[in-house]
Computed example of a mutant assay.
Amino acid sequence: MSRYLMGAGEIARRLGLSRQRVQQLSERDDWPDPYDELAMGRVWLIADIEAWITRQRSEIAAPDADFIRDPPAGPPASRTDGSAPPAAVPPRPANVRKPPT
């Protein structure tokens, strides 16, 4: 699981809602902007979602241990392509565009 990103399924599990309801919530003006849009759908930074939860849903604001993890000790693990993982969260794209249809 990503240490930085969440899709609708992970957000649904965190909030105890359906993915469909998360998609509805994501249309709200106060919902965080997506970090990116992939073939599987939009993804958000965990920090942005947790901040939204803190502001909107204080009764469930305690972070879920599954989503807040300390980085592993030791050198970074290598990826299957041999490249090293990013040292930090990459910057959010200035303008997230939807893929052409």
Rank of each mutant, 00 (worst) to 15 (best):
I46D: 01
S18T: 15
L45T: 06
D30I: 04
M6I: 15
R57T: 05
Q20S: 12
R21V: 07
L15A: 02
S2F: 09
A62K: 09
A65F: 04
R21A: 12
P100S: 09
P99K: 13
W44V: 10
E59H: 03
D81A: 02
R13G: 01
R97Q: 07
R92I: 06
W52R: 11
P32D: 05
P72N: 05
P34N: 04
G82I: 05
G74Q: 09
W52H: 11
M40G: 02
R79L: 15
I46Q: 13
S83L: 12
V22D: 03
R92M: 11
A94L: 11
E59M: 00
T101C: 08
L38W: 14
G74I: 07
P63W: 07
Q56L: 01
D48P: 15
M1E: 11
R79S: 14
P76Q: 02
D29H: 08
D48C: 15
Q56K: 13
Q23R: 14
R14S: 08
P100N: 05
I46F: 13
R92C: 07
T101I: 08
S18L: 15
R69H: 06
L45K: 11
Q20C: 02
R69F: 09
E50Y: 06
E27R: 15
R42E: 06
A73K: 14
D29W: 00
M6E: 12
I68A: 10
A94S: 14
A61N: 08
Q23C: 11
